[in-house]
């Protein structure tokens, strides 16, 4: 009986295993190997050169810039959607009439691809006839107008705004789902006990949303670390690489200059950063959970 169960388990696992190894595990391991070679042309050969690329990376200003950009990008892309998404979810939970319709409208950005999001925001940020500059001109803030995507001092933040716009919707969805799990009786009881809205929020609702917070933070973190589409569509990393993330650096190094070995090394670093960041976050939430338990 039991051997038959194990037999079927093996059968069921066989095809997924092959597909997963072919698409994910194998290529991942190959990237580790390529990062140790000098492969730098489409038909070229890969000769083993050890850790040279990693040493080169330490002295590569483009790498450090992309790393810094990725770090700031990730920090903002976690904090802003979490805060704004929570506020919106708390607001939306109050809506009683036409709730479905209103919720659907707020969720809409989630179904949009980053290419379309990037394109729309590209139009908003156009210097001559973009919406943002038009509005600023109309309300008398003409001096605030910028070439939002080509001015090196603001381009990074402009792209980040577009990114956060979509991530807010994601955070809001998760928080709203979490809010339906907050026991209404408990909130009502606090009200009876004379707790005001702010006390209820801090001492009842937010603690009850812990799992939702964990989901929002880990999702936004993973998404932010691999951000590529929106940057590519809006600026291609420019001006002067001010908006280049690690993900974009991998793409550019591999498929514009065909330095596959070095690009592999950068992709390995990106992978390790992702692993460590997420690992630390999970370890931290687990410890908190144990302390609270």
């Amino acid at each position: 009986m039991s051997t038959r169960r194990i037999g079927w388990a093996t059968v069921f696992l066989a095809v997924p295993l092959i597909a997963y190894v072919a698409a994910v595990v194998g290529p991942g391991l190959y990237s580790f190997y390529y990062s140790l070679t000098d492969w730098n042309a489409v038909g070229g050969t890969a000769t083993f050169i050890g850790l040279k690329h990693y040493r080169d990376m330490a002295g590569d200003e483009h790498f450090w810039l992309a790393l810094k950009n990725t770090a700031i990008w990730t920090a903002v892309a976690v904090v802003v959607p979490t805060v704004v998404g929570l506020a919106l979810a708390l607001g939306l939970a109050q809506v009683q009439r036409m709730q479905r319709l209103i919720k659907s409208l707020f969720f809409l950005p989630l179904a949009l691809s980053l290419v379309v999001v990037g394109q729309v925001w590209f139009w908003i940020f156009r210097p001559e006839d973009g919406l943002l500059n038009l509005v600023l001109g109309h309300v008398g803030l003409g001096s605030w107008q910028h070439s939002w995507l080509s001015d090196p001092s603001v381009a990074f933040w402009s792209v980040l705004v577009a990114w956060c716009w979509q991530q807010v919707a994601l955070a809001m969805v998760v928080f709203l789902a979490g809010l339906t799990g907050v026991q209404q009786e408990l909130v009502e009881a606090c009200k009876v006990d004379g707790a005001n809205a702010r006390q209820r929020l801090w001492h009842v609702i937010i603690p009850a949303l812990r799992p939702a917070f964990a989901v929002v933070v880990s999702l936004s973190m993973i998404n932010a670390l691999k951000s590529f589409d929106i940057v590519y569509v809006m600026t291609e990393g420019g001006p002067f690489r001010k908006t280049e993330t690690l993900a974009l650096l991998v793409y550019r190094t591999a498929f514009k200059t065909y330095d596959f070995g070095y690009a592999s090394a950068v992709s390995v670093v990106l992978f390790l950063i992702t692993l460590v960041t997420i690992g630390l976050f999970f370890a931290w939430t687990n410890r908190e959970d144990h302390q609270n338990a």
Partner: peptide, 13 residues
């Protein structure tokens, strides 16, 4: 695999 950024798969694939 959820924690594997797609960029690390691109070159071998």
């Amino acid at each position: 695999g959820l924690f594997v950024p797609p960029q690390i798969l691109l070159i071998p694939l």
